[in-house]
């Protein structure tokens, strides 16, 4: 009887203890990669970020953290030449070539950490973690890239790439070189002025 009670007690204690083992892994990156990317234009977008986190228990404020800072996003666009550059002769034109470039695309959207300016930091309780802040910055990146495209970043990147190619070919004697870019669907362009005075707010309450 006593033995049964002991066994039952041990099982109950073991059951009450929770043992969690979580293995999270990521690929160790230490690599060298060849590219063939021509970066020809970039936009810089400034974001003013405000985060306020509050927590109260029975009207007692345990946490009230506020942070206000500004940061730049850099959107780089250009051509991935690995997608193929076609060169065709134009027989009816002397020294004529037709070069078709791949369409420009957004190659990267990055935070320029050297542009971070912290304006306000007030806090009671725990400090905000960088992952929480990074998650907020990550969330708006797609919209920043979309905005850059609407202001003509891709068209500008293509124009610059075409000019570069023309410059090289003209120097090599192909005065009649015709540079084309493979067409692709694009969102309509916006004018510039509203972008400077306008705003793209996002206020979320969680």
């Amino acid at each position: 009887m006593l033995g049964a009670v002991l066994v039952f007690g041990v099982i109950a204690i073991l059951g009450a203890c929770e043992y969690r083992s979580e293995r999270r892994s990521t690929h160790l990156r230490h690599r060298l990669e060849t590219l063939f990317e021509l970066h020809t234009a970039e936009t810089v977008h400034r974001d003013i970020v405000y985060i306020n986190e509050r927590r109260e228990v029975l009207l007692w404020r345990l946490l009230d953290t506020r942070v206000l800072f500004s940061v730049d996003y850099r959107v780089r666009a250009g051509l991935n030449l690995a997608e193929g550059v076609q060169v065709r002769r134009v027989p009816w034109r002397r020294a004529g070539l037709q070069v078709t470039l791949p369409p420009a695309k957004v190659l990267s959207v990055e935070i320029d950490e050297s542009s971070i300016q912290q304006h306000l930091l007030r806090g009671r309780g725990r400090r905000l973690g960088w992952l929480e802040i990074a998650a907020e910055l990550e969330r708006v990146k797609d919209r920043v890239a979309e905005d850059a495209e609407r202001y003509g970043l891709l068209q500008r990147a293509e124009a610059n790439a075409a000019e570069l190619a023309r410059s090289v070919l003209t120097g090599a004697g192909f005065e009649q070189a015709e540079i084309r870019v493979r067409s692709t669907a694009r969102p309509p362009l916006r004018s510039v002025r509203p972008a400077i005075t306008g705003r793209i707010p996002e206020v979320g309450r969680l």
Partner: peptide
Amino acid sequence: RSERVVAHDILLQEMRDLARLHTLEYR
């Protein structure tokens, strides 16, 4: 009670030309 307020205000600052051919990336 728990509340989080997040605000963003994004402005296009400038557009720049580049002419760089990236052939290698070391990470």
